[in-house]
């Protein structure tokens, strides 16, 4: 009988399309960053679809923020790792 509502994944594709003009005016570097923004929103399309909130635009934004948070965590861990290595070097070697 078919679904009455479009899926969240369909919505996301449509929503991204609505930013076409914005995307077109961006400079090269920012353009790639912009694409990544939506790529990250898609990464959490499963959770957003399950949440099923009628306010889908907010779901998109939270998905993007979440991806940022993940990236921050990754970078924080990486910084800590590099700091440990740097400290190890400092401890072991002469000043």
């Amino acid at each position: 009988m078919g679904r009455t509502n479009p899926t969240y994944r369909d919505f996301l594709a449509d929503y991204e399309g609505r930013w076409r003009d914005y995307r077109r005016a961006l400079r090269h570097e920012a353009g790639a960053d912009f694409e990544r923004l939506f790529e990250r929103a898609r990464r959490h399309a499963d959770a957003a679809g399950y949440a099923n909130d009628p306010d889908r635009e907010t779901l998109v934004l939270v998905s993007m923020l979440l991806a940022h948070e993940t990236e921050l965590r990754r970078l924080r861990e990486r910084v800590a790792e590099l700091e440990r290595e740097a400290e190890g070097d400092t401890d072991g070697g002469p000043r």
């Binding site: 679904r3 009455t4 509502n5 899926t7 898609r42 990464r43 959490h44 399309a45 499963d46 679809g49 399950y50 099923n52 009628p54």
Partner: peptide, 11 residues
Amino acid sequence: HDADRGGFTFE
């Protein structure tokens, strides 16, 4: 709104 959904698919 709550019912009109399919199965769950992970990304």
